[in-house]
Design a protein around this nucleic acid. Structure first.
Lengths: 225, 225
DNA sequence: CAAGGCCACTTTTCGCTGTCAACATTGTTT
DNA sequence: AAACAATGTTGACAGCGAAAAGTGGCCTTG
């Protein structure tokens, strides 16, 4: 896939290859170690070739984040099939956490302040916005079912759910050691989300049943801390 | 305060002046626009002088973040005086949001992934850890009073509260436009926190009374977006 | 089939950054 | 007075993002 058709002057697939390699570099090293020059060097083109495909370094980052959101949609799917609103929201939250742990640096790029300004990339905006609709749908069904308490309008409740999940996730990623939850991070995350979601439910009996100590979740991804 | 005693060779107060100017630069421009050389140039010392006081650029950032946490303690105070646990937690959350809006870039430095690695600065670690104790204290009193439901152990509930507040705040800072809460950000934040805290209370009647549309909070700080 | 244009890439160059090694200057201790 | 440690300075290196101008090759158009 790396080697191209025939001509050595025109690479032919540079944009995609830049994206792929950029993500690889992102994974081990974070945004700080991502340099256009290094990418170009490694691919074997001149150091300014990337500028044919991305106006900026920022534009590359925006493209990466956009693709991250598109992959992110996939994990939102199950919530549409689960009939129970509380479980649906919980599953969304757990998937959110899993995504963040498996694609930590991408997650940071998508939701963190590293990529700025971000309001000039319509695709990125649309992709990010799409995500909240998943939650909205779940909340709407929950309200219709009567499983969720009509505490406020849909948008507001959806925002609250998102904030809860997002807070649990980011705190876990960036400050796990500070707050002393070295192990069983997934367990703590699930407990927190259950507590918060329970408050939104009319009948919180199920959701507030905290999970047992042993968790079926995958071990934390190897990180370069 | 800038001009020193008499000698022009030894500055005399370089460390503090670096910190002050660094924060100023941080405020308008973010971490990306913070350069040791620019600081040195502006202060009027040579470009390597800062290295006498900070091993690294990272060390400067760590010092800034540490001081940020120390200021952050001040806002935690009111929660100790408020007898009602729900209100105490809510006030903490509101103060958290206010701090984040008034010192956006500092907040990002304190809680975001920009400063890395951060585990080699004991002072920073201690300062960050101190913050969670405020919440713990509030939760402990709430549990003792019977105002908070004993859903789990203190640490776990405190972590949950923190995550809720943190999620609301970061989402508001970084993605306000994405999720369509351009105005009345403080109102939305308060509503979300009330909903979440209500779920933790035995009698959520007061806390779930959502605030009215007009808010007494200060307008958003002028930001360079 | 040739002319011309356009696109993808290269070369060159600029100014900026963090950081290191060696040196100079100062206030303080012995 | 002499040695010392702390604090600045000079100069240099490698790396970066980015702009300007040139070049090779494919594609359209006459």
């Amino acid at each position: 896939m790396a080697s191209n058709t025939s001509s050595s002057y025109h690479h032919g697939n540079l944009r995609q290859e830049l994206m792929d390699l950029a993500e690889k570099h992102l994974i081990d090293g974070g945004v700080r170690d991502l340099s256009l020059r290094a990418l170009a060097r490694e691919i074997g083109v001149s150091q300014t070739a990337p500028y044919r495909h991305f106006r900026d370094k920022n534009a590359l980052l925006a493209a990466l984040a956009t693709e991250g959101f598109k992959r992110f949609f996939e994990i939102g799917r199950p919530s549409e099939e689960e009939p129970r609103a509380d479980k649906s929201l919980l599953y969304f939250g757990l998937a959110y956490v899993s995504f963040a742990r498996e694609h930590t640096e991408l997650f940071h790029l998508m939701f963190g302040p590293a990529l700025q300004p971000r309001n000039q990339y319509p695709e990125l905006f649309a992709a990010g916005r799409e995500a909240i609709y998943k939650v909205r749908a779940g909340v709407e069904r929950g309200l219709a079912n009567g499983e969720l308490r009509p505490l406020d309008n849909v948008a507001s409740i959806a925002h609250t759910v998102w904030a809860a999940v997002h807070g649990v996730t980011t705190l876990m990623l960036d400050h796990a050691d500070t707050y002393g939850y070295h192990r069983d991070l997934h367990l703590q995350a699930e407990k927190s989300m259950r507590m918060m979601i329970a408050g939104l439910c009319t009948d919180p009996s199920y959701i507030s049943n905290l999970p047992s100590e042993s968790t079926p979740y995958p071990p934390p991804a190897t990180e370069s801390r």
